[in-house]
Amino acid sequence: MKISDFQSKDVINIVDGKKLGHITDLELDLRQGRIDSIVVPQFTKMFGLFGNNGTEIVIPWRNIVKIGADVVLVRMDESKALRQEEDDLHARS
């Protein structure tokens, strides 16, 4: 499977059924030769338009439930996703 194949799939959270978006990046463990996580930009709805607010949801590989022909099903608790974003902000500071 190519990275471009991942980018064309919708990422769906099976906990609440929400579409999270599309995969924009992968985090790799080069020592182990495996994918550590997938990265999905977080979009917000402002004035009826979708816009990227600059944050990303980093979904660990262990949270991927199924990779189908059109979608990637993940199990993400919303509070964990929010904490991940806060951790990323603190790490960048």
Results as ranks from 00 to 15, higher is better:
Lys19Arg: 07
Gly48Thr: 10
Glu78Phe: 14
Arg83Gly: 08
Ile12Trp: 03
Ile38Asn: 00
Lys9Ala: 01
Met46Pro: 00
Leu26His: 09
Ile23Met: 04
Lys9Tyr: 01
Arg62Val: 03
Val71Ala: 08
Glu86Phe: 13
Glu56Leu: 10
Lys80Ala: 12
Glu56Tyr: 12
Val72Gln: 01
Arg83Lys: 14
Thr24Asn: 04
Val65His: 09
Gln7Asn: 05
Ile67Pro: 09
Val74Cys: 12
Leu28Trp: 05
Ile3Tyr: 11
Leu26Asp: 02
Ser8Met: 09
Leu20Gln: 08
His22Gln: 13
Leu49Asp: 10
Ile23Asn: 01
Ile64Ala: 06
His22Met: 07
Asp10Leu: 13
Gly21Val: 05
Asp77Met: 13
Val58Ile: 13
Val15Asp: 03
Leu82Lys: 13
Asp10Cys: 07
Thr44Lys: 15
Asn63Lys: 11
Ser93Arg: 10
Lys9Cys: 02
Leu73Ile: 08
Arg92Gly: 07
Arg92Pro: 00
Val71Ile: 11
Leu28Arg: 07
Val40Gly: 02
Lys45Pro: 00
Ser93Asp: 09
Leu73Thr: 03
Ser37Asp: 01
Glu85Leu: 07
Leu28Gln: 01
Ser8Asn: 11
Val39Lys: 07
Asp29Lys: 01
Leu30Asp: 02
Phe43Gln: 04
Leu30Ala: 06
Ile35Tyr: 00
Val11Met: 02
Asp10Thr: 07
Pro41Gly: 07
Gln7Lys: 10
Gly54Ile: 08
Lys45Met: 08
Asp77Val: 13
Ile35Met: 02
Arg75Ile: 03
Ile67Glu: 08
Asp36Ala: 11
Val71Gln: 13
Pro41Trp: 04
Val15Trp: 00
Lys2Pro: 03
Val11Asp: 00
Ser4Val: 12
Arg92Asp: 14
Asp87Lys: 13
Lys45Tyr: 06
Gly48Ala: 10
Ile35Asn: 00
Gly21Arg: 01
Asp5Arg: 11
Phe6Pro: 01
Thr24Asp: 02
His22Val: 03
Gly33Ile: 01
Leu89His: 11
Asp36Leu: 06
His22Ile: 02
Arg92Thr: 12
Val65Ile: 08
Lys66Thr: 03
Ile35Asp: 00
Met1Glu: 02
Leu28His: 05
Val39Asn: 02
Glu56Met: 05
Asp25His: 07
Gly21Ala: 10
Phe6Asn: 03
Gly68Met: 06
Thr24Val: 04
Gln84Met: 15
Ile12Cys: 00
Ser4Phe: 12
Met46Val: 14
Gly48Asn: 11
Leu28Gly: 02
Ser37Thr: 04
Glu86Thr: 11
Ser93Phe: 09
Ser79Lys: 13
Leu49Arg: 10
Ser93Glu: 11
Glu27Asp: 11
Val39Met: 04
Thr24Ile: 08
Asp88Asn: 15
Lys18Gln: 07
Ile67Cys: 12
Gly68Asn: 14
Asp36His: 04
Lys80Cys: 11
Phe43Gly: 04
Trp61Phe: 15
Ile67Thr: 14
Ile3Arg: 09
Leu49Met: 15
Gly54Trp: 06
